[in-house]
């Protein structure tokens, strides 16, 4: 067994939550630059330029790129030969987020569903654990904003709906969302599994860096088809009209029940924050 201390986990998650919020990924900035080339609307071009400027201010002045610094979402892949020592694993992940949001001056955005009373430290967080072979611990820190999450949808389609049905629902979700999720967006699509698994697939699809190909070329073609149709809606940057409504569509798929065709659409705003840690 390889031992990893909870302190190392706390420190790594803390740093990642701050960096994810201050430093927009190079892949997203590159997608903005490519978007400026393709955008036909002058207002749309101007917005994309301002988003690049925003990312530079955040990075250089060490402040969050967006005031919605998100709900703490963490994906974990723990090798079965890893032993966590010095405390409990779940609490360590939560403590990392707690410290990061306090010391990084990030917004605390978690509240009671009915009273709306803020919990004050951005916990609890959402954790998805997976056990894999090996002795490594992989952690993705994925702060997720509320505006784009609110526009996400899940459909339990009849199998007869097929690809045309999936395509129609994905495009409809983005079209109905219009300006609300802060376009240009990134669209995560989860196909198959079951009710909850399709949503997890959709969220995991958002972790793939922009510009990297889908490992499955068939799904890659579907992503292109969806992106073209979405960008034909005319919603554009910030929904003010234009070509670049979404920067990318990412699909993840797995088999499902013979009676079902689950499809989840998880929308991410352009402030796509995700950091991968390997311990």
């Amino acid at each position: 067994m390889r031992e990893i201390s909870t302190q190392a986990i706390i420190d790594a998650v803390k740093e990642a939550s701050i960096s994810a919020n201050y430093e927009l990924g190079e892949d997203v900035v590159r997608a903005f630059e490519e978007g400026i080339e393709k955008e036909e609307s002058p207002v749309g071009k101007d917005i994309l330029n301002q988003l690049i400027e925003n990312s530079l201010i955040a990075r250089n002045q060490r402040i969050p790129m967006c005031q919605d610094t998100g709900l703490g979402v963490i994906f974990v892949e723990i090798g079965q030969e890893v032993s966590i020592v010095g405390g409990d694993f779940r609490s360590a992940l939560e403590e990392g987020i707690r410290q990061g949001y306090k010391d990084g001056f990030l917004r605390k955005s978690v509240c009671h569903p009915f009273t709306r009373k803020n919990t004050g430290d951005n916990t609890p967080i959402i954790i998805h654990f997976d056990i894999v072979p090996g002795d490594k611990l992989k952690i993705w820190v994925v702060p997720k904003g509320g505006g784009s999450e609110n526009m996400s949808q899940l459909f339990m389609l009849p199998p007869s709906a097929g690809w045309p049905g999936i395509r129609q629902r994905v495009v409809q979700t983005v079209a109905q969302a219009g300006p609300n999720p802060c376009p240009p967006t990134i669209i995560g699509v989860g196909i198959g599994g079951n009710f909850e698994q399709s949503a997890i697939l959709a969220k995991k699809a958002l972790l793939r860096p922009l510009g990297s190909p889908n490992p499955d070329p068939e799904l890659g073609k579907m992503e292109e088809e969806l992106l073209t149709e979405i960008n034909n809606t005319g919603i554009g940057p910030q929904g003010l009209g234009g070509r670049i409504t979404s920067l990318a569509v990412h699909i993840r798929m797995m088999p499902c029940h013979i009676a079902s065709l689950p499809v989840a659409v998880n929308i991410n705003c352009h402030a796509s924050r995700h950091l991968e840690l390997v311990l």
Binding site: L51, I57, A58, M65, G145, H270
Partner: peptide, 27 residues
């Protein structure tokens, strides 16, 4: 409409901030 997600950029236009009510609501 202001540019959603451009929180760092927008903050440059703010010269002072003062809580006048509901401090318990935090953000």
């Amino acid at each position: 409409a202001a540019i959603g997600g451009a929180g760092a950029l927008m903050s440059r236009a703010i010269k002072s901030a003062r809580i006048i009510a509901y401090e318990d609501l935090g953000p």
